[in-house]
């Protein structure tokens, strides 16, 4: 890649970002939480169904229900990375 093109590319992104970094991080957490919530909706319904039929499914149902929470944790990592900059 020619260095002129690279410079042009970097130059264009180096201009003022659309939103401040903190706002972007907050958006990332919010969107991740919405995604996790949507995923948990289905899993939670299924888990409650399973538990209603068989009490011993409680632990497994709980774990599966909170699995999508990991997305939010990852988004939180992004926040700290942004704060550190």
């Amino acid at each position: 890649m020619s260095s002129a093109l690279l410079q042009a590319f970097v130059g264009s992104t180096a201009a003022a970002p659309a939103i401040p970094p903190l706002a972007a991080a907050a958006l990332a957490v919010g969107l991740a939480a919405i995604g996790a919530g949507y995923a948990e909706r289905g899993i939670g319904a299924a888990a409650v169904g399973a538990i209603a039929e068989d009490d011993s499914m409680f632990g497994r149902g709980l774990i599966l229900t909170v699995l999508p929470e990991t997305i939010v944790i990852l988004a939180l990592v992004v926040v700290f990375l942004t704060l550190g900059q």
Partner: peptide, 14 residues
Amino acid sequence: ANYEYVITRVRSRR
């Protein structure tokens, strides 16, 4: 429709 709930229960009964 609440497919997830009904289907887990149905599968368990099945």
